[in-house]
Amino acid sequence: MSDEIILKIENLTKRFGGVTAVDQISFDLRQGEFLGLIGPNGSGKTTLINLITGFVKPTAGKITYRDQEITGKAPYTIACLGISRSFQMVRTFHKLPAFKNLIVPLYSPRVKKFGGGKYGERDDIAIDLLDDLGFERDSFVPYKVAGSLPHGYLKRLDLARCIALRPDLLILDELFSGMAMSEVAATLPMIEKFNREGLTIIMAEHRLKELFRVASRVIVLNFGQKIADGPPKEAMGKEEVQKAYLGTEVEG
């Protein structure tokens, strides 16, 4: 982890009518950090991710990515700067073969800048990427129509789609929800490896036990507000956090 600040959030607020989904949130994220984002359902995790990635425009506040203000910029502009995000609800192109799902990010200006290859070459890159994420190249899995794959594979396909963009900051929105234990166990080391190789990661997650194995820091949200920020043990020990999770199941 370096001292360079990759993402700076200042007083970020989003109101939907009467609901304040994200309320005056501020934090800094350093290059190479692995941040867990937790909180009960409806606490504003997805909205915060949507704000950072430009899918939702903030009511107030400022987002800075590597010295560049990105508040209110278009999602594709932000993606091309190197922020890649997954979706809580699986979103894949169901009618396309799994590996063709990766063509979209591989076709982006960001990947082209890295010399992303031509028609056909992109197919090979896509299959290599999927192979790394457990879609065995020699099975028929990468070639199957995405809609026919089990949920766990679709979640990993979404992860592959994020990685295909060659991000500097990866934001995962409940990647593990709906995944089988064995799939989580297989995916976790891959994410850990990306982080070790220098990728900064924000991971919104309900499976706390798994999250705390990889995240060095967590931010806890409740009703849109940041109620804790620090190493997992410390943050979870806070009285406010215990209260927020009261009645909801705390794993780990």
């Binding site: 979209v104 076709y107 200006p109 028609y119 963009l165």
Partner: peptide, 25 residues
């Protein structure tokens, strides 16, 4: 059926995924 066309069809299926892939829809 080329990559350009896949991007176009992607926009029809789910433009949010395409935007998340860094493409100006």
């Amino acid at each position: 059926n080329e990559d350009f066309g896949l991007v176009l069809r992607g926009i029809k299926d789910d433009d949010r995924v395409v935007m998340a892939g860094g493409i100006n829809i």
